[in-house]
Design a binder for these strands. Sequence first.
DNA 1: GTCTATATAGGGATAGAC
DNA 2: GTCTATCCCTATATAGAC
Lengths: 189, 189
Amino acid sequence: MTTGAPSPPRSREEIILRLFDLFRRAGYEGVSIGEISHATGLGKSSLYHHFPGGKADMAAAVVAFAKAWMEARILAPLRAAIPLADRVDLMLAAISELYDGGAAPCLVASMLLSRGRDPIDADVGALICDWIDALARALRHSGISPNEAVERATSAIITIEGALIVARAAERLDIFGDAIDRARRTLIA
Amino acid sequence: MTTGAPSPPRSREEIILRLFDLFRRAGYEGVSIGEISHATGLGKSSLYHHFPGGKADMAAAVVAFAKAWMEARILAPLRAAIPLADRVDLMLAAISELYDGGAAPCLVASMLLSRGRDPIDADVGALICDWIDALARALRHSGISPNEAVERATSAIITIEGALIVARAAERLDIFGDAIDRARRTLIA
DNA sequence: GTCTATATAGGGATAGAC
DNA sequence: GTCTATCCCTATATAGAC
């Protein structure tokens, strides 16, 4: 069943968190202002008060939030002064949490649909690029050659993104967990 | 620039081919009847003549087409009485063609968005499951253990699906080609 | 900041002539 | 089969009171 009456959001961040969940699950065009109003518990006028630019503004806020989240939970841990295996495990733990063990879709994949029609495509794509770069950098700093580092980083992120698709299609969450394990082995082999 | 005035479709299959392209690029909710009308060169009434069930009917026809295409171009080659490496290469060649070397999105991934709202989710997911099954079967018939076969098949398809996402996000088509090579090595190692 | 009411456009879909 | 015209609904967005 769909979640019933939502409790009112306490802060702007809580609003954006709910927007994040809506957009990642249905894509930009798949979410209506009416649904957003219901899911956030805010009336339409309140929404336009918080986001004067309307729906595009909301999507931009969500992407900005995702960027900040990634910096804090992925990129920063990858720069930590700890062994590579620990950095990778921190990243993968955050990723599993972000994607709810494979049950929640990736915002990037969802927002990338209908490219060229949404307002904020470039920022969305940059999230993936930044992730690859940071991961490759972490591998290089652990003595892996530049080429190999980029290849492994790209491969691991491809595995994670692909597992989200396949796990949802097959309705088998264990596929995501297995893929995370494979990504780990790829990275710290 | 967007493609200009479209030439009229010659057959129902040509209509469905254009619908396929629209839905895979924008998802179910991302395509409007108006766009479909323009892209196919058919007026709205003509569309509803060919697809009495409306948009849902069009999507169902596209999924049915995808199923038939997969049977002919993927599943049948995987059953051919030729060496495993050749079967895999036939599959990967068809896949590269289907996804236009990484430039075209996957219908399954696009249609899976906003799950539970589209009419035909189960059939879409089944496409992936059938693919995994057929690929695993091909590996088993070449002497690979059942567990290993399913794992390799799943891993290869995850790589392909993930590469489509990452290649689009990074706007780097070579990522897709590299991933295809990696999938091949995974399968025929 | 949030409400009610409303403007305006576009969505999917249908009717009926041809 | 395709066209024109149209219906009804929902979409995004705004106005103005509170």
